[in-house]
Design a protein around this nucleic acid. Structure first.
Lengths: 204, 204
DNA sequence: CTCGTAGGCGTACGGCATACACCTACGATT
DNA sequence: AATCGTAGGTGTATGCCGTACGCCTACGAG
């Protein structure tokens, strides 16, 4: 009966994501999102309960965009690798939202869809019961950790600074490893780690 | 010559951790830490540059407390498992700091010491070069992800809410897995996933 | 005993999330 | 076509936050 809505939650999510992509996560505020939409800050509260909900919408926008259709691939490992890679790419396209993805991951329907797809493949691989639970959880753990390691890692080489200022002689393995690490590309590292997890998951 | 310092960075870290443990991460503020120490907020700035540095000190306090002395154990897998378990326990003792550990992990000398110890064991296991880089990174990814999954998971069952409100029929595997998941304890889940990673890391 | 240094504090500013009261645009009803 | 109740949008205000700045003063070296 009354005045119709002029905004959708998707538009709010898109505006918030635009702010984050452009100005960084620290710049995300109700005021900034409202400005992005050409409205007053308080108008947003007709559509969301609070700032946390906006963050949740952003995560859903990013994670919900992952294609979970059955991927091609001869082996189940290849297919899981494809799904994992798609998730990684989607997050990688918006690196600033990484810290949000963990705090809000559990509320995302997108993650649920993705997990469902992965579970289907794991089932085909012969996993069931507790083994399958642990395998999914292990895989999810690896992906979450690896994405973070990749995107909120050194952050302008601060990590190297710590190493350098801390008597390299006391950390012979780390020093040597750092040398090798520079030769290993981020993709190789990510998919290499993934291969480890998939290899350990079951025998066939 | 002048007035001596009355505070150490450790005391600041301990005070901040006390605030976090008692009132949650959201309650961490310069004012709260200062009150905890019986000082004015601005007095803290004689010891730290900004709030981020306080957060870093907290992370270092938590992560630096991990015992990295060579653990007993017959196989290298058992020894790595011990080190990983110690790290998990330390974080588990202060669950509210979990979100901080990722943002500040790369600046922590404690993580460096831990990594060094793990690298030593991996080397004994016969790993070297790029393989060892990838193995360490994979292990770290798993630990980071698993700890997060464990501690900022459902958060009062919000995750289950999403599943329940989203047509369980569309997620047959998830529904079935949720049933099994309830029977798998958090420890079993964590160490089961870890075993997967360790199994896939090398052959011997 | 004196004095320079640096510790500690009070105040203030700009920005944040958001509660609340208000005005008003609008579609359903007459 | 006129009316009216509802709900959208806004302005204002409150109480937090981090932190810049300038002051006072406790202190140890001389």
């Amino acid at each position: 009966m009354p005045r119709p809505r002029s905004l959708t939650q998707d538009q709010i999510a898109a505006a918030a994501l635009a702010v984050i992509d452009r100005d960084g996560l620290a710049a995300l505020s109700m005021r900034a999102v409202a400005t992005e939409l050409g409205m007053s800050a308080m108008a947003l509260y007709r559509y969301v309960g609070d700032r946390q909900e906006v963050e949740g919408l952003v995560v859903e926008l990013v994670l919900g965009g992952v294609d979970v259709s059955p991927p091609p691939g001869t082996s189940w490992r290849e297919r899981v690798t494809t799904l994992v890679g798609r998730l990684r790419d989607q997050v990688g396209a918006h690196p600033h939202v990484v810290p949000l993805t963990m705090t809000h991951r559990h509320r995302s329907a997108g993650v649920l869809r993705w997990s469902e797809a992965v579970l289907g493949i794991l089932t085909e691989a012969g996993l069931a019961g507790a083994d399958r639970v642990i395998a999914l959880r292990g895989l999810l753990s690896y992906v979450i950790g690896a994405v973070q390691l990749e995107h909120l890692g050194p952050l302008s080489g601060a990590g190297t600074t710590v190493i350098a200022g801390l008597a390299p002689a006391d950390f012979p393995y780390m020093a040597e490893t750092a040398g090798h690490a520079r030769l290993v590309g981020v993709d190789e590292e990510f998919y290499g780690g993934l291969a480890i997890v998939l290899r350990g998951m079951c025998d066939n």
